[in-house]
Computed example of a mutant assay.
Amino acid sequence: MTTTLGVVFLPFLPPEQLREAAQAAEAAGLEELWLWEDCFRESGIAAAAAALAWTTRLRVGIGVLPVPLRNVALTAMELATLARMFPDRLLAGVGHGVQDWMQQVGGRVASPLTLLREQTTALRALLEGQTLQTAGRYVHLDDVALDWPPAFPPPLLLGAVGPKTLSLSGELADGTILTGATTPEQVASARETIDAARREAAVSRRHTVTVYLPAATGPDAGDRLARELTEWGMGTDSGIGVAGNAAAIAAAAQRYVLAGADTIVFQPTRDEPDLAGFMGVIARDVRALMP
């Protein structure tokens, strides 16, 4: 199966640059553009709606919507609206959120895993057109159903790091999103945990693994990547990220594919001087070198 390639539009960039980036991604032939709902930068839903409206073919992923920030009925309404307006082009990711940020907004809960389980279960059911009567620890729905559920619900993905969340993703989700701090060895381990949970839950639907890969190309690629890794609290000897030409980037991506990744989303540095050019390298040069 062909590996899917994407690029992140980082929320460190001002939102008014998204239109140019989304259209550049589509013009380059990139398959997916990914967005982050990081506190307190940019809305995942608003940015996704705009990117989808400005393009005609590009798939747009949200990775991820922090569930402590959101009532599940509202998330379902928003995702259903996008899925109906832009069929087969939305990828919806949800996750715990960064707990310090959740604390800042008064949304931190005693059991993030329970909240994610309850929200994911309810979200899938609502998007499938079910009527819910739910009284969980955190999710309470009284005869709730969407008036406009999508004919084909978008793939529901979970952002995951730890083994418990990876297992939950395998049980409930259509895919897992792994952070840019993930090595190929960790991808392989995550895949094993996910697949074990799928077997235990007797889940047969396909489950994809998406991983962010920090990358830089151009004459100062090494320096920019080193600064980026330092900013993220990772050393240059961590085995994370790749700097170099298309061949080097493709080789790094292939290591993740062999470890079990289905989608590689390249994460440019915050000081990337030519985002459109970076997208072109990924869509044309790196794609041509992927087996």
Results as ranks from 00 to 15, higher is better:
residue 278 F to N: 03
residue 249 I to C: 10
residue 276 A to Y: 04
residue 217 T to S: 02
residue 231 E to Y: 04
residue 267 Q to P: 00
residue 268 P to V: 09
residue 239 G to D: 14
residue 247 A to F: 07
residue 213 L to M: 06
residue 273 P to S: 10
residue 213 L to V: 08
residue 201 A to W: 00
residue 277 G to P: 05
residue 209 V to C: 14
residue 239 G to L: 12
residue 281 V to K: 02
residue 257 V to F: 01
residue 232 W to S: 01
residue 212 Y to D: 04
residue 205 R to L: 14
residue 214 P to N: 05
residue 232 W to C: 01
residue 239 G to Y: 14
residue 253 A to T: 08
residue 244 G to F: 02
residue 227 R to A: 06
residue 268 P to R: 04
residue 230 T to D: 11
residue 248 A to E: 14
residue 219 P to E: 14
residue 221 A to W: 06
residue 244 G to H: 06
residue 246 A to H: 08
residue 259 A to H: 08
residue 212 Y to H: 12
residue 240 I to S: 07
residue 235 G to F: 04
residue 281 V to I: 09
residue 236 T to K: 12
residue 271 D to E: 13
residue 226 A to I: 05
residue 237 D to H: 13
residue 252 A to L: 00
residue 244 G to R: 02
residue 278 F to L: 03
residue 237 D to A: 14
residue 250 A to I: 13
residue 214 P to S: 01
residue 228 E to P: 00
residue 231 E to V: 03
residue 204 S to Y: 13
residue 251 A to L: 08
residue 250 A to R: 12
residue 274 D to A: 00
residue 228 E to Q: 15
residue 233 G to C: 10
residue 276 A to P: 09
residue 216 A to N: 03
residue 225 L to E: 02
residue 216 A to F: 00
residue 265 V to F: 09
residue 278 F to R: 02
residue 268 P to Y: 01
residue 201 A to I: 05
residue 256 Y to R: 03
residue 278 F to W: 01
residue 261 A to W: 05
residue 206 R to G: 12
residue 233 G to T: 09
residue 252 A to H: 00
residue 264 I to W: 07
residue 204 S to H: 13
residue 203 V to D: 09
residue 241 G to N: 03
residue 225 L to Q: 07
residue 233 G to Y: 06
residue 220 D to K: 10
residue 280 G to Q: 07
residue 224 R to G: 08
residue 245 N to I: 08
residue 209 V to M: 15
residue 235 G to A: 10
residue 232 W to V: 00
residue 235 G to Y: 00
residue 243 A to S: 15
residue 250 A to F: 11
residue 263 T to E: 12
residue 246 A to S: 11
residue 265 V to A: 05
residue 216 A to K: 00
residue 204 S to E: 15
residue 259 A to R: 04
residue 248 A to P: 03
residue 278 F to D: 00
residue 244 G to L: 08
residue 245 N to T: 09
residue 266 F to A: 07
residue 264 I to K: 07
residue 260 G to T: 15
residue 269 T to H: 01
residue 264 I to Y: 00
residue 239 G to P: 14
residue 253 A to E: 03
residue 272 E to L: 03
residue 235 G to S: 14
residue 216 A to D: 06
residue 249 I to T: 03
residue 243 A to K: 11
residue 225 L to F: 05
residue 277 G to N: 08
residue 246 A to Y: 02
residue 233 G to M: 04
residue 262 D to Q: 11
residue 242 V to N: 02
residue 209 V to D: 04
residue 254 Q to E: 14
residue 228 E to L: 08
residue 271 D to W: 01
residue 238 S to W: 14
residue 226 A to E: 09
residue 266 F to S: 04
residue 212 Y to K: 09
residue 268 P to L: 06
residue 245 N to R: 14
residue 262 D to S: 13
residue 255 R to C: 04
residue 271 D to I: 07
residue 273 P to Q: 11
residue 204 S to Q: 15
residue 234 M to G: 02
residue 213 L to W: 07
residue 210 T to W: 13
residue 274 D to E: 04
residue 240 I to P: 05
residue 235 G to C: 09
residue 262 D to E: 13
residue 255 R to T: 12
residue 256 Y to A: 12
residue 233 G to H: 09
residue 250 A to D: 11
residue 220 D to M: 00
